[in-house]
Amino acid sequence: MNWHNVITIARKDIKEVRENKSIWIPMIVVFLIFSVVLPVIFILAILHTAESELMTEPMKTFFQNMPTSLTNQIAGMTLEQQMIYLAVTYFFAPLFLILPLMVSNIFAVDSFAGEKERKTIEALLYTPTTDKELIMGKLLAAFVPSQIIAWIGFVIYSIVVNLTGYPTFGRIFFPGLLWVVLMLWIVPAVSLFGLGVSVLVSIKAKSFQEAYQISGSVVLPFIAILLMQIFGVIYLSIWFTLVLGLLFWVVDWIILYIGTKKFRRGEIIANMV
């Protein structure tokens, strides 16, 4: 495989998306909602609610069912601090999986199904690039931005929650080890999963919209994780996170292996009408 070709394709795609406001403006909005707006509103709401009113019925059940490892983590904190800590560290974590997933999804769909729809892909197919270089270029074009955005989001989120939580904590309380695992282990695995699915769907799909809608459903499992955590069914312990990550890496490997092996440029042509 000629990496020069892979990088050339990826750079062109990124440049093209940068010129496409209809893609990156909604992305920035979602990005700001997840990393700034939601956490700030949540923390401020807790800080401005009387401690006696914080302990609602669902919260009571949650605290009762909490595994001991979690109880140990929040031991010695005030109720206010405990709730902020849990929200910032656990409840919002799935959002940070959804963010890179959405980015990689929309980039991959644009660079594959979008290019197909705009009929620009045909000339690219006639170049002396191999099928593998083509698909790798497209994957890279979506993977790199999704990681950059995830890390920028992570940094902004860390600053925002520490600043907003400072009045009650009086110290930097975020991030802990879980988030290191999350960012280094899960986020790339999940992004790869999202874009692998998007690329596979894009090869067959007739239009950008179709590909985006079908592949967009990959966020559903993460919304499920988000909800299951809030209702105390699961929680993202470090072990759980490591295993979940491993699972995604295995699935990624299978998708990419099949994708790069089976992909033929003729398939794009045959599905291009």
């Binding site: 062109k12 440049k15 093209e16 010129e19 620009t120 045909e122 690219l124």
Partner: peptide, 8 residues
């Protein structure tokens, strides 16, 4: 079809 990138 022209197969050119219109945004570039």
């Amino acid at each position: 079809t022209s197969s050119l990138y219109e945004r570039l």
